[in-house]
Design a binder for these strands. Structure first.
Length: 793
RNA sequence: AGGGAUAUGGUGUAAUGGCAGCACAACAGAUUUUGGAUCUGUUUGUCUAGGUUCGAAUCCUAGUAUCCCUGCCA
């Protein structure tokens, strides 16, 4: 995992001793199959813990009895194990702790922090208010602890119908954060739970259950996606109210979508139901089961996950990143053999009937052999052998099959394959010349009569082939993207931001009508089936061997449908095909990348921004007067306008000395101290800043030193001038001293010096930085610039 | 509308006041018995406007755009 804001937090917490070890959890809801979206979240959760020597938990978030099933639990765990994760003993379910959550709920009631509400759902929504208006208390909000306890116990006992009552936290009905307006903790639901059976008729809500379970499991860093930011307030409220210590903390990350993919559970279900795909494991599906059946390896999936990156922005990842991870993995894993997917017959006139030549051809191209870390390469069995032993026998008879696409009666410009009268190299077998061509009534080529040339004839291209008498018939399933457009869920084909949820499987409102619009972007050619032939050597390879069929792509036997006597090969992924790209361009079709219409650039000048310049902020007459007063005292107009709109800054500045230093102190207040001032973390008064401003104005200290000192003083409360005096931070204006420092730096970075003299002017910043660092920021910048320019001339 | 989050090439991600880097994609060339792979090179970027600073992607101010929240889902 590359460093990111989560690893930064983990390192900080480990270093400070806040937690002895990091503990994370991946909490899927068992209400659907794991898919590529889950890979990202699970990788972040698991890999972070693994990387810092902690432990990771797999947890089934099964608080909703209507959605969770054992089948999904097993499938998710199975898929994650396939990826290589091993959580050991640490497999949990929310339903493990139903009894404990109940006890915490009673405790909350006893603390006066939760109450049983008995209004209808609609009424509760109405009372909650909206963004503009605060909520109003339910008539039941002030029930006594005894009454709440009694009602809650009777809720558990099953005395009430679904929806008759709920347990709510008593937090803040006026909060601008809607999540805090007395969130529901428990609901009545007379439903059988796949694990708890009929033991319960009340079920905890996510906001109550999740933090508690994190705490019970000893989780330290609880990661979730960005839309839970508002829920963190409940999380923290619960942890503090119940007094957990040490306690887990929630951190949110941005989601990652994938182009050309939908992962909405309901939409995937629709694809299955409509028969667009053959099932949840149809190799075109984004589910892990499907990718597994497709032949993608766990290593490739993990490599993909590691490349995506983590931050706090929702982003859409280019599908080519995934495809690249798959190809990159297979390139060094898949032995090369030949298969003809769409065959046309070739008769070699100068090869006697009945004669078979047996060729010994290498499984691997030279570059894979060259790059092998141990100097060996794999056989289809996986056994690693010296390169000279990694060969297979390939028969060559009088009749062959070649790819229909590899012969053309009317070759386009740049065509490097077989033409009438032309030559081409048969992979591993020599040069072939096409002499005569038979066609059927429709003009399709049926047979090519050819001659195998002896000696070292030349040919521009190389094509693959199989010997007709020896080849094994096979079915080929050629998969392509399920959708024609990057964002099938968008309103138009150019939208490229699919709604894609890495962690949750059921955020969708099951009751809302499903927008089936995405179906119109289905790729009609997402599956092409052909019948052709593979070379006989593959018969002896293990069933799970991934092969590269040269010039065609990576394939393996379909684990479900392939039979010993009826081979079915599925294409895992194509090879990159620059020729196809060229021909597309030649036909005037835009290459794929260009088809991606640029989305409107965020921040590109919109209609409003373009013409009108930002208008000055409107100030009240009182504020205008205050601005006039501050500017008269020496503050800049900009600083003054900022100051008058911020009471805290203004209050601080009220203590400033009103002399020649005022403008500087005002500037520091606005530019350097504002954030700390608002959070009440400034330990010095404005009056203490005047001596510092005087020192700066007189040139005795540099701006850099002044600001550093300011920050330190603000944090410690010590008078800045005293820090300067104690540490002797006055400006270095000694030319000889500076020249010495510069000489040392230049001597230590000869390459940079050369680059600078070669024209890389940006390096001046680097050198200045080095000098500043060496002098603790005390060097006079003007002098530094001058001396540096001289020294580098 | 109120609250919250975010903004770096075509895409994804680094740079924690000092060289805007890396990967994917694209393009060009080399190489190649896979139109694959590999190698070399090139194009393209700090949302906008001000400010602080010798120096700003980074700090300050204002604006713009996008996303999230107002389920008894998670």
């Amino acid at each position: 995992m590359t460093p990111n804001f989560i690893t930064e937090i983990v390192e900080r917490d480990l270093h400070s001793g806040k937690y002895p070890a990091v503990v994370t959890r991946f909490p899927p809801e068992p209400s659907g199959y794991a898919h590529l979206g889950h890979v990202f979240a699970s990788f972040l959760d698991f890999q972070t813990a693994a990387q810092y020597g902690g432990r990771y938990h797999l947890r089934m978030d099964d608080t909703n009895p209507e959605l969770a099933t054992q089948e999904y639990v097993d499938a998710i765990a199975d898929d994650l194990r396939w990826l290589g994760w091993d959580w050991g003993e640490n497999f949990y379910s929310a339903s493990d702790n139903f009894e404990k959550y109940y006890a915490y709920a009673e405790q909350l009631i006893r603390l006066g922090k939760a109450y049983v509400d008995s209004v209808s759902g609609d009424e509760m929504a109405r009372l909650r208010g909206d963004a503009g208006t605060p909520g109003t208390p339910s008539p039941f909000r002030d029930r006594s602890v005894e009454e709440n306890l009694d009602l809650f116990r009777r809720m558990r006992a099953g005395e009430f119908a679904d929806g008759a009552h709920v347990l709510r936290a008593k937090i803040d009905l006026a909060s601008p954060n809607m999540k805090l307006r007395d969130p529901v903790l428990y609901r009545i639901l007379h439903a059988s739970h796949y694990r708890a059976g009929d033991n319960w008729c009340i079920y905890p809500m996510y906001d109550f259950q999740h933090p508690l379970q994190d705490a019970l499991e000893g989780v330290t860093h609880s990661m979730c996606s960005l839309e839970f930011v508002d829920n963190r307030a409940i999380y923290d409220w619960l942890m503090e109210t119940l007094g957990f210590s040490p306690r887990p903390h929630q951190y949110e990350f941005g989601r990652r979508s994938l182009e050309y993919t939908v992962v909405s559970k309901r939409k995937l279900r629709k694809l299955v139901q409509e028969g667009v795909v053959t099932g949840w494991d149809d190799p075109r599906m984004p589910t892990l089961r499907a990718q597994r059946r497709l032949g993608v390896t766990p290593e490739a999936v993990l490599a993909f996950a590691a490349q995506i990156g983590v931050n706090r922005t929702n982003r859409t990842v280019d599908i080519s990143v995934y495809e690249n991870a798959v190809r990159d993995d297979l390139n060094h894993r898949a032995p090369r053999v030949m298969a003809v997917l769409d065959p046309v017959r070739v008769v070699i006139g100068n090869l006697p009937e009945g004669e078979t030549r047996t060729l010994s051809l290498p499984y691997w191209p030279h570059d894979v052999i060259r790059d092998s870390p141990d100097g060996r390469v794999a056989l289809p069995t996986g056994e690693r052998v010296p390169p000279e032993q990694a060969v297979r026998e390939v028969p060559l008879g009088r009749e062959l099959y070649i790819e229909r696409e590899d012969f053309s009666l009317d070759p386009p410009k740049g065509y490097k394959r077989l033409t009438r009268g032309g030559t081409v190299r048969l992979r591993g077998a020599g040069i072939l010349r096409a002499d005569e061509v038979e066609t059927d009534a429709a003009g399709n080529v049926t047979t090519i009569h050819a001659t195998l040339l002896e000696g070292d004839a030349k040919a521009a291209g190389v094509i693959h082939w199989v010997s007709a008498a020896h080849a094994l018939p096979a079915e080929f399933r050629l998969y392509d993207r399920l959708f024609r457009v990057p964002n099938p869920e968008g309103d138009n084909p150019d939208d490229i931001a699919p709604d894609f949820d890495p962690e949750r499987m059921s955020h969708e409102n099951e009751a809302a009508p499903l927008d089936a619009g995405f179906l119109r972007y289905l790729n009609p050619h997402s599956l092409r089936v052909t019948r052709g032939f593979v070379e006989p050597s593959v018969a002896s390879g293990p069933a799970q061997t991934r092969y590269q069929f040269e010039r065609q792509g990576y394939f393996w036997r379909d684990p479900v449908d392939s039979r010993e006597d009826a081979l079915v090969f599925g294409r895992i992924i194509t090879l990159k095909d620059t020729w196809a790209k060229e021909t597309q361009k030649a036909e005037g079709r835009a290459p794929q990348a260009a088809q991606k219409a640029g989305k409107p650039q965020p921040g590109a000048p919109g209609p409003q921004a373009a013409g009108s310049r930002p208008q000055a902020l409107l100030l009240t007459p009182e504020q205008e007067a205050e601005v006039a007063r501050l500017t008269a005292l020496g503050a800049s107009a900009g600083d003054a306008r900022t100051l008058v709109r911020d009471a805290q800054l203004l209050a601080f500045l009220g203590g400033a000395v009103q002399d020649g230093t005022f403008g500087q102190v005002a500037s520091w207040t606005v530019n350097d101290l504002a954030a700390a001032l608002r959070s009440g973390e400034v330990g010095v008064g404005a009056a203490d800043l005047a001596p510092l401003a005087t020192l700066l104005a007189s040139g005795q200290i540099t701006t850099r030193v002044a600001r550093d000192t300011l920050a330190r003083a603000a944090a410690s409360g010590e008078a800045p001038a005293r820090i300067i005096e104690r540490e002797g931070l006055t400006t270095v204006t000694d030319s000889a001293e500076l020249e010495r420092v510069i000489r040392e730096i230049l001597a230590a970075n000869p390459d940079k010096v050369e680059a600078y003299r070669g024209g890389k002017a940006g390096l001046m910043g680097f050198f200045t930085g080095q000098v500043m660092r060496a002098t603790g920021g005390q060097a006079d910048p003007k002098l530094v610039a001058q001396k540096l320019t001289e020294a580098l001339a």
